[in-house]
Write a protein that binds this DNA or RNA. Sequence first.
DNA 1: AACTTTCATACAATCGATTGCAGAGTATAT
DNA 2: ATATACTCTGCAATCGATTGTATGAAAGTT
Lengths: 355, 355
Amino acid sequence: MKQVAELAGVHVSTVSRALNPATESMVVPEAVARVVKAAKTLGYRLDPVAASLRTGRSKLVGILVPDIATNVFTPILAGATERLSTQGYSVIVAYVGSDAKAQLDLAGGLIARRVDGLILATVVRDDPLAAFCIAEGLPTVLVNRAEKDVRLSAVVSDDMLGMQLAVDHLVELGHRKIGHLAGPSQHSTGFLRRRGFTQATASHGLPAAQTPFEIAETYTREAGADTTRRLLHAHPEITAIVAANDLLALGAYDVLREEGLECPRDISIVGHNDMPLVDMVQPPLTTIRISHKEMGRQAADLLQQAIETLDSPARNVVLPAKLIVRNSTAPPRKSILKRFTAPARSQQIASKARS
Amino acid sequence: MKQVAELAGVHVSTVSRALNPATESMVVPEAVARVVKAAKTLGYRLDPVAASLRTGRSKLVGILVPDIATNVFTPILAGATERLSTQGYSVIVAYVGSDAKAQLDLAGGLIARRVDGLILATVVRDDPLAAFCIAEGLPTVLVNRAEKDVRLSAVVSDDMLGMQLAVDHLVELGHRKIGHLAGPSQHSTGFLRRRGFTQATASHGLPAAQTPFEIAETYTREAGADTTRRLLHAHPEITAIVAANDLLALGAYDVLREEGLECPRDISIVGHNDMPLVDMVQPPLTTIRISHKEMGRQAADLLQQAIETLDSPARNVVLPAKLIVRNSTAPPRKSILKRFTAPARSQQIASKARS
DNA sequence: AACTTTCATACAATCGATTGCAGAGTATAT
DNA sequence: ATATACTCTGCAATCGATTGTATGAAAGTT
């Protein structure tokens, strides 16, 4: 920088000001031009490390992503990274497990690196890390999963709506006994989708006894399979399953295959997320589409705002969910209908008419 | 740091040395203990930014990942990140397109941030960015894709072996007319897998006329479909297809479905990568398994070595590939066998016996 | 006892920018 | 013509650690 100053015939402080868009206006344009030219001929670039040391800012943001279930989080990461990089930010990613202490350490390390903000894709409904970020006064945005209380801005999908769409679809096809594979209830997705399922079935007048659920430990295919077994064992009469997540739905596929049942002939299945390739499984999965990439982008925007305008209020952005109908859903089998649901059915229709 | 020095009753330089594992031995153990204790009571942590400014090192590494085909690169990223973070490194990811100038700019930015090294998952067979990194003297390792010449360490899958396994499998099933959906030939994967295909078919004595290939523009399902159409149109007699990539194979599935052909009855298909969920498509895809996560880990190890021991020689790590047989491959239809390959077959067996 | 060697610590320069403050120079008002 | 305001640039302290060199004390040698 000293060399540039010399070549341009000005003081280093002038160089600094000329090269920083925010302070450029303090320098007479002709001098700016000289500085820029000198910088170019010397191949000079500002040193972000030195700037960071002095200013406390870094143009870096951290993203914490769960180390499992990369299917869902990759597009979020890609969307956020894409958007942030156009704004001059670089992104440090950390894949983390669910250990709260480890998460706090990691966040501490990122803060030491002077990150300007954090995007958390990891939070549970009452998250110590979120509390920590608030205490530190670090701009932070949650993505995909939110907390119970709105303390930080978050970008999430409309989980309740998604379940409503799924249930509407099944009811329209004639299903009256619908099971739910719920996600872990410490995650907002698991919790809210379960609540959405309950509300949606209730809105159609289906009693709780006809709409059982079982909770999966994790969002994995294996957990989906285990949970499906429990659900079907306890409630063999159900004709459809709404899963909180595509992987859980695929776990259900595995169990149906084991048991010699056929989807959608014997049981209809609806997933959630519309992750890549679920249109190619057999049968192609009916599911709720979420734009994870868009989620990442919006989280990036929100974070940028939070960074650049101090004390911006916490905002909750809820993205719409959309039903994608494929071939894993169909009307329930006649025989089953007759056997289990025919009496109940007219009742449902009546109650629906009332509402 | 000054406060810690005061509390411990030593000079800041002693604190610095006591807290740095590399220089800790210069300080008498008793003093180290005092310093550590003082640091703890003050809740003090070294400032990586200041250290970075002074030393030129940063404990940061950059990873450049193509902005498409995240399916393959996510586990690489996860593996590398996991391994590097246990070594105290943080990872800056950048998703980049194929524009060489943009890539160079990005790399320049990372260098300005003082990254200690770079992992490139983006290189083509003769890559300007790789040349740039060499010129800069920046420790760099390539992953998944390598260059034509070994100038930098690389961790790749055994592409040639993979194709040999795929072809062996098909020949064993009785196929003699096998097509290849090749990947872009500027990528080592596309190039080497095509060569592997050619060598493997030749090793079974299959003439080139019976083993046509078409090159896909990109590794996408759509390109796979287009390329399959071209291949089948020009060579309707083939009974099996080896794809350079699972997505290309799935594109082939799409075309077969369009054309009313059935896999594997009419045409067998082998993929490459064994990406998530290809065991659930219909029919479950026979493919070549690559451990992408392990690739990421090994790349991380190599990079760490390159960083810590200056001028370590370029090493090429080739990970084994493995055939995973599922249901997309079967013996060719009798009728087709008789019509096209029966005469050729005895010849093949004879030539195989000779070799 | 004098001298060398060794070891631990202290001193101070340095990495490269940013920024509050002061001062020089110019334009405007009275 | 003088005072006032205003614009631009220079000065120098600062961010927080690292590290080559100097210093002093302790240990070892003859």
